[in-house]
């Protein structure tokens, strides 16, 4: 076995461009997924049957089918309906839509973990449902859900590698490119594994920091 580690410095910036793209995809998808997750999650606890039904259907569909199939469907399938995306856009869209489904359930669980007395106290003083949600329930729900959100963000960073299947030159695809030139799969896959780990580990550290910063004094986790 001859491992040639010099291929890493030689292709470093090419690989870093891939890493950059991975980060961009992941961050955008996390943000869209977060916003979408809140909307879907609100819909999922709605008393309106149609709103509830549609959001539940959406979530079950996106959770119940492979992400790769969703990516293919959006990139290769939607053009037959006249919707054409670039690979990058299709990739980000698929990841966002998929993550929104998972984040909706995280959000819903967070909201339902808040004792119902909080909503009642707020309503009892004349605040509307939306005001109570926005000022009382959601701020507490998001805090409680932070560890689960961290999980989802990390999963999303790792799953972003799937968009290579439609030709997005992100980190994994870049590595594959280099391997085709250098025949050093072990070296390159070890290297990108480390790069992914750095990304996910930083994410969990950052989230931990945010969690501490927003911890409520006088509760577990707050001092």
């Amino acid at each position: 076995m001859n491992l040639d580690w010099s291929v890493i410095p030689e292709n470093f910036w090419f690989l870093m461009d891939g890493a950059k793209l991975t980060l961009i995809i992941a961050i955008i998808a996390i943000l869209f997924g977060f916003a979408g997750g809140i909307l879907l999650g609100m819909a999922r606890i709605s008393k309106n049957r149609a709103v509830y039904g549609i959001s539940t259907g959406y979530i079950e569909a996106f959770r119940g089918t492979p992400l790769l199939v969703q990516i293919f469907l959006i990139y290769f399938g939607l053009p037959s309906l006249g919707l054409q995306f670039t690979p990058l856009m299709a990739g980000i869209l698929a990841l966002s839509l998929n993550s929104a489904a998972y984040q909706a359930e995280i959000f819903r669980a967070g909201v339902q973990s808040i004792p119902k007395g909080q909503m009642e106290a707020s309503r009892s003083m004349g605040m509307t449902y939306n005001q109570s949600m926005f000022h009382v329930i959601i701020p507490q729900a998001l805090r409680n859900s932070m560890p689960t959100y961290t999980n989802e963000f990390i999963t999303l960073i790792k799953d972003s590698s799937l968009v290579m299947a439609i030709g997005v030159l992100e980190l994994t695809y870049s590595a594959k490119d280099v391997i085709a030139d250098t025949f050093q799969p072990f070296v390159l896959y070890i290297f990108i594994a480390v790069v992914y780990f750095v990304m996910t580990f930083s994410t969990s550290r950052i989230m931990r920091f945010v969690e501490r910063k927003f911890a409520i004094p006088g509760t577990m986790g707050g001092e």
Binding site: P115, E120, A121, S124, M125, G126, R143
Partner: peptide, 26 residues
């Protein structure tokens, strides 16, 4: 409701807000 407010057995203060903010919010 704003003119006929309920005080609960379990207090139901907003846990993420200080005493002052609990009062000023509504």
């Amino acid at each position: 409701r704003a003119q006929m407010i309920m005080v609960f057995q379990s207090f139901n203060l907003f846990m993420h807000l200080t005493a002052k903010k609990n009062i000023s919010l509504a």
